[in-house]
Simulated assay, not measured.
Amino acid sequence: MHIGILTLTFALPGCASLKEKRQRMGGLHERFGRNPAVAVCESGERNRLTVSEWSFVVAARSVAEVESLCSEIEDKLQCGVDGRVLEARREML
């Protein structure tokens, strides 16, 4: 079993409240948490309005599968979030 952690930091320009931030970032749990190989959580920057950090823990039988799932998540989030990806970090455990 191989495990990877994908951590993405998003810029949310013009975000005026925590409620708006949750709406703009909403649905990540539902979209990616359905896959039994992926766990999703807001991992940082919870109280900053214009920045959000999310981590995705991916488990699979091979490193290639982990990398593929991480790439898929990253690609979907590039277009599916009302914000801009500032940083993407990957770590293999």
Score class of each variant (00 low, 15 high):
64 A>N: 05
87 E>Q: 15
34 R>G: 03
14 G>I: 07
14 G>Y: 06
29 H>D: 09
38 V>D: 00
54 W>P: 00
66 V>W: 01
39 A>K: 11
50 T>C: 08
51 V>A: 10
86 L>S: 05
60 A>D: 08
86 L>I: 15
4 G>T: 04
10 F>C: 07
88 A>P: 03
55 S>T: 15
33 G>A: 01
87 E>A: 13
38 V>M: 05
75 D>T: 12
92 M>I: 11
72 E>Q: 14
14 G>W: 11
46 R>G: 13
15 C>N: 09
53 E>D: 05
16 A>E: 13
55 S>Q: 11
91 E>M: 10
2 H>Q: 12
78 Q>T: 14
1 M>Y: 07
87 E>W: 01
74 E>T: 02
87 E>G: 03
67 E>C: 06
81 V>Y: 02
5 I>T: 11
60 A>V: 07
59 A>I: 11
67 E>G: 02
18 L>K: 03
66 V>R: 05
60 A>H: 08
93 L>I: 11
34 R>M: 10
74 E>H: 13
88 A>I: 01
79 C>Y: 12
84 R>N: 04
53 E>M: 11
18 L>N: 04
49 L>N: 05
76 K>I: 00
19 K>V: 10
11 A>Q: 05
40 V>K: 07
13 P>F: 04
80 G>W: 10
57 V>S: 15
6 L>G: 02
77 L>K: 03
45 E>S: 15
57 V>Y: 07
54 W>Q: 02
55 S>P: 00
37 A>C: 14
61 R>S: 14
11 A>M: 02
48 R>I: 13
40 V>E: 03
16 A>H: 12
83 G>A: 05
4 G>S: 05
11 A>S: 13
26 G>C: 01
4 G>D: 00
52 S>M: 07
14 G>P: 01
45 E>M: 15
1 M>R: 09
86 L>P: 04
4 G>C: 06
1 M>N: 06
69 L>C: 08
40 V>H: 07
60 A>S: 15
51 V>Y: 09
6 L>A: 00
67 E>A: 13
39 A>T: 13
24 R>N: 09
86 L>Y: 04
73 I>G: 00
35 N>I: 00
69 L>G: 03
4 G>F: 00
52 S>C: 15
31 R>G: 01
28 L>H: 02
8 L>S: 00
34 R>F: 01
11 A>R: 12
47 N>W: 13
73 I>L: 10
38 V>W: 00
74 E>W: 07
3 I>H: 04
74 E>D: 08
17 S>V: 09
82 D>C: 04
14 G>L: 11
39 A>G: 00
43 S>D: 05
27 G>Y: 03
74 E>L: 13
81 V>H: 05
16 A>M: 10
2 H>Y: 09
3 I>D: 07
82 D>S: 10
90 R>Y: 06
61 R>D: 14
76 K>A: 15
47 N>R: 15
16 A>L: 14
19 K>G: 02
22 R>G: 03
70 C>N: 09
61 R>T: 11
29 H>V: 03
39 A>P: 04
62 S>Q: 10
88 A>W: 06
36 P>D: 09
60 A>C: 02
31 R>F: 04
8 L>R: 02
79 C>D: 13
38 V>P: 01
56 F>N: 03
23 Q>L: 12
71 S>V: 05
